[in-house]
Design a protein around this nucleic acid. Sequence first.
DNA 1: TATTTGCCGTAGAAAAACTCAACCAAGTGA
DNA 2: TCACTTGGTTGAGTTTTTCTACGGCAAATA
Lengths: 296, 296
Amino acid sequence: MSVAPPRPKGPHLNALRAFESAARLKSFAAAANELCVTPGAITQHIKALEAWAENDLFVRRTRGVELTPLGEELLPEFTAAFDMLGSAVQSLRTKSTPNKIRIATLPSIAQLWLSEKLGELRRVAPDISVSVVAVETSPNLARDPYDVSIFFKHGELSSTETDLFQDRIFPVCTPEIAARLTSVSDLEGETLIHDSTWAGDWGYWLERVPDSARDGKRGPTHSLFSVALEEACNGAGILMAHEALVLAKLQAGALVAPFPHKVSLDRSLVMDVAPRFRNTVACKMLKLAMIEKLSA
Amino acid sequence: MSVAPPRPKGPHLNALRAFESAARLKSFAAAANELCVTPGAITQHIKALEAWAENDLFVRRTRGVELTPLGEELLPEFTAAFDMLGSAVQSLRTKSTPNKIRIATLPSIAQLWLSEKLGELRRVAPDISVSVVAVETSPNLARDPYDVSIFFKHGELSSTETDLFQDRIFPVCTPEIAARLTSVSDLEGETLIHDSTWAGDWGYWLERVPDSARDGKRGPTHSLFSVALEEACNGAGILMAHEALVLAKLQAGALVAPFPHKVSLDRSLVMDVAPRFRNTVACKMLKLAMIEKLSA
DNA sequence: TATTTGCCGTAGAAAAACTCAACCAAGTGA
DNA sequence: TCACTTGGTTGAGTTTTTCTACGGCAAATA
């Protein structure tokens, strides 16, 4: 009824972003992590937004939060909007600095496989600068600040994805240890080195190899594959290796594969490219460097 | 090459909004106005964004700014993103408070026509609360915080729009003044009251009425029609009235129309409803109140 | 029963955003 | 021609927002 002052302000953009993140992840803590702030900050944003709307968006349970029907209803709209905004921002970045590539990948891939390939890329196209960001989970290429992602993937590839290699595993160790291993059953009694991200690897391999020991759980576990690899090089035991990650060590002779049995996992290392980045010069150069070397 | 720290931050959301606004309006000053800040704030945001992108988005001319090709290329993406975000926010508002309606309209419509209709609405649906915001130009209903807009429009109506009435103009004055006017030519020598937003009205009317004076420029101009109307009621002269805006005064006898000639302008007062607001209860009630009374 | 997990609340600190006022340069117009 | 206007810029200072730190709490876990 009353004539309001012009342009009533909406909620703060950061509050909207906090809502979108918290709602999508169904957790304030996770949203805080995603946005690189403390959970308290998320609480405040959400509260501010709820106050503005004069309605609750979340029901607070003692352990975690839950969306109200209203929040649930609104989430897709906000997610779509922030996807689009993120995409616009990334588009700005890509178009502004076409020679800077950002790659997201697993820490072990970054360290043990990718760095070599990037040497190749630098040789081919020295004006392209690459940042590698080691993350645990595959990012949303449309929204997040990466041009390329390299992760293991199971199942069908989309048309934008490139298969880099199939993941194959087999035991590796120092030549000294290998000398005392003549058959798979000799593993009984040896120290088996594990990687926590691929905890089931030893079990998977042993299952598929005849005459092998049953127990694939013995021995130390490392959270980084690169550490496990280093341990193996130091003769600490036998590591279940992923082929591409130990090639360099095998070629250098630091490690050997004592058995001929290589087991294929039903997944591949897959490279995906952000929509805006396809068909750029830098993208072509990158693919060249990655795939060229692979066939060699 | 180097392994960057995780989650590199993007530009501030407010900077993006400033860019979108400035780019769309092709003016920092206009953007400042739209976002209710000073031009200096816009300058700062844009500069920050340009620094982040390491690229210019605008070329500064001495009189105003111009988009660079890069900025031009990016604008549609950002506009789409902010449209969507605005729409999501309005959706939140509408769904949170379905009984609060915001109407955007011209100041004169708000004061002289709408307030009466809203009385009717309040009678029919007392639980609906209405805010009327007087603005000069029609808002983007998908993005801006209004559920309904009421503006004059020329040409075809879209399916979401409702024609409220055709705009017709004719002179009005107090009965005392009317007493000494027997023919249109008597206007010669009288004081003609003008409204600045519809400056050409007198000329338009005079052109279309036989035997009229040629000069439609004499007399005082007011920037608000309501002020001009008040002046007319005080006997300050003869006002070129818009029919719907003076009905109440005519009915009350404060003003009369000294001549029978009513001239139709080729435009109508048109009501448009935001997408999210269509099919809501409040919307139906509003339409009822607006159109019901009209036919009476 | 002790511990952990995940959100809340507040106080104070840090960062961002904004205003203000002076300034500049190119048109405009008296 | 000289003052005025327009539209953007700049930097200092201030306000507002945003964030962190940290104690608290309640339920699930062990």
